Computed example of a mutant assay.
Amino acid sequence: MARPPGRDKLKVGLSVEIETKENQGTGILTTGIIRGILTASRHHPYGIKVRLEDGQVGRVKNIIDTAAKEQVQPPANLKSGNIPKTEDKYNEFKEFYQYDMSIEKLPFTGAGRQKAIDGIMNSVRERFATAVCAFGNDTSGGSVHLGIRADGTIMGLERDKQIGNFDDYDDSFANHIRDTLEKFLKDKVFIIRKIEIKFRRISDKTICTISVRPAQRPLYVHVGDEQRFFVRGPAPRSERLIDQKDQFRYIKFRFPNYEG
């Protein structure tokens, strides 16, 4: 049997055949495009472990396309700013920015109710920041579309605007989004240079697209004293890398010049 290709032969964007853990010894190989190289060593007797664009992980057995691309190019709709009909690798929908239907069902009133509302809103904003973090850590970036349900239904951001007491969208609402990202990501340079916020009207409802370009250093979601590292998982959602070794390997391939 031919020796599996070494790490120096592999690059992000390369088409390969991998053997997943589930298919070890069966002869079944999975075809895909490399999103990340997980093995740090130059060679491995069973093949270099990689993560494919669809999130599957396995060891490379064969290279299909030797014309590797350094970076996967996003589809035209991301460049043009059009709203896609469905979520994909480059687009994630969020029904709300900080509102949640559970707020309407809270059984109590007064200070206790407001405290519960604040907690719910903070959790919804954290999920939004998580999506931005994952796109920033990806090689291609992407867009978070607020006011669109997961099935593609346009919901609008009117409830978010009302509960946040925002005077308008382009000024106070947009500034609140930036403040939220600064709170959770704690990277002001990234927010200024890599984030674009655009509101638009569709079917008499206002939505917001946050375009995220790839970060130049690792991004984390900060929750209390904890730093959480997210990447794009199997489309169209974000995936948290909990294992420190997985984080190290991903950061090493994605941010080769980072020395943090």
Score class of each variant (00 low, 15 high):
residue 86 T to E: 06
residue 248 F to A: 15
residue 197 I to M: 05
residue 2 A to V: 13
residue 193 R to Q: 14
residue 213 R to D: 04
residue 125 R to L: 00
residue 201 R to Q: 10
residue 115 K to I: 04
residue 115 K to L: 06
residue 97 Y to K: 05
residue 4 P to T: 08
residue 102 S to K: 15
residue 216 Q to I: 05
residue 98 Q to D: 02
residue 201 R to G: 00
residue 14 L to P: 00
residue 137 N to E: 05
residue 179 D to N: 14
residue 85 K to G: 07
residue 260 G to M: 09
residue 81 G to P: 12
residue 115 K to N: 10
residue 176 H to C: 06
residue 20 T to Y: 07
residue 227 Q to A: 13
residue 188 K to Q: 11
residue 55 G to A: 07
residue 208 C to Q: 00
residue 247 Q to E: 06
residue 84 P to L: 06
residue 153 T to S: 08
residue 204 D to L: 06
residue 101 M to Y: 08
residue 172 S to H: 12
residue 54 D to A: 03
residue 224 G to W: 12
residue 220 Y to H: 14
residue 208 C to E: 03
residue 30 T to Q: 13
residue 210 I to D: 02
residue 194 K to S: 10
residue 238 S to G: 04
residue 177 I to F: 05
residue 231 V to M: 10
residue 220 Y to C: 09
residue 92 E to N: 11
residue 7 R to H: 13
residue 191 I to T: 04
residue 162 Q to S: 15
residue 245 K to G: 03
residue 117 I to S: 05
residue 149 R to H: 15
residue 13 G to N: 06
residue 164 G to W: 02
residue 136 G to P: 06
residue 78 L to C: 01
residue 40 A to V: 10
residue 154 I to E: 02
residue 147 G to E: 01
residue 141 G to W: 01
residue 14 L to R: 15
residue 61 K to W: 05
residue 208 C to Y: 08
residue 201 R to K: 12
residue 26 T to W: 05
residue 255 F to N: 04
residue 121 M to I: 01
residue 166 F to Q: 03
residue 75 P to F: 00
residue 178 R to S: 02
residue 88 D to L: 02
residue 227 Q to T: 06
residue 175 N to Q: 14
residue 181 L to H: 11
residue 203 S to Q: 15
residue 12 V to P: 00
residue 257 N to R: 14
residue 3 R to N: 11
residue 127 R to F: 00
residue 118 D to V: 05
residue 2 A to K: 13
residue 12 V to N: 09
residue 94 K to M: 00
residue 245 K to A: 11
residue 131 A to V: 00
residue 29 L to R: 14
residue 202 I to S: 11
residue 200 R to F: 01
residue 237 R to I: 00
residue 126 E to W: 00
residue 50 V to Y: 03
residue 22 E to Y: 12
residue 254 R to T: 12
residue 229 F to T: 04
residue 129 A to R: 04
residue 78 L to Y: 09
residue 39 T to W: 02
residue 227 Q to R: 15
residue 100 D to G: 08
residue 141 G to D: 01
residue 78 L to Q: 08
residue 242 I to A: 12
residue 28 I to A: 12
residue 161 K to A: 09
residue 115 K to W: 02
residue 2 A to I: 09
residue 191 I to E: 00
residue 162 Q to E: 15
residue 179 D to Q: 12
residue 67 A to V: 12
residue 97 Y to T: 03
residue 246 D to F: 02
residue 99 Y to M: 05
residue 211 S to M: 01
residue 26 T to D: 00
residue 45 P to V: 11
residue 156 G to C: 02
residue 195 I to L: 10
residue 160 D to F: 06
residue 188 K to P: 01
residue 108 F to N: 11
residue 137 N to K: 09
residue 246 D to P: 03
residue 65 D to I: 06
residue 160 D to E: 09
residue 56 Q to I: 04
residue 170 D to P: 05
residue 204 D to A: 14
residue 223 V to M: 09
residue 251 I to Q: 13
residue 226 E to L: 14
residue 137 N to V: 05
residue 231 V to A: 03
residue 17 E to H: 07
residue 127 R to D: 13
residue 231 V to D: 02
residue 136 G to R: 04
residue 241 L to W: 07
residue 84 P to T: 04
residue 248 F to M: 12
residue 131 A to H: 05
residue 200 R to E: 10
residue 54 D to T: 09
residue 105 K to H: 13
residue 35 R to Y: 07
residue 246 D to C: 00
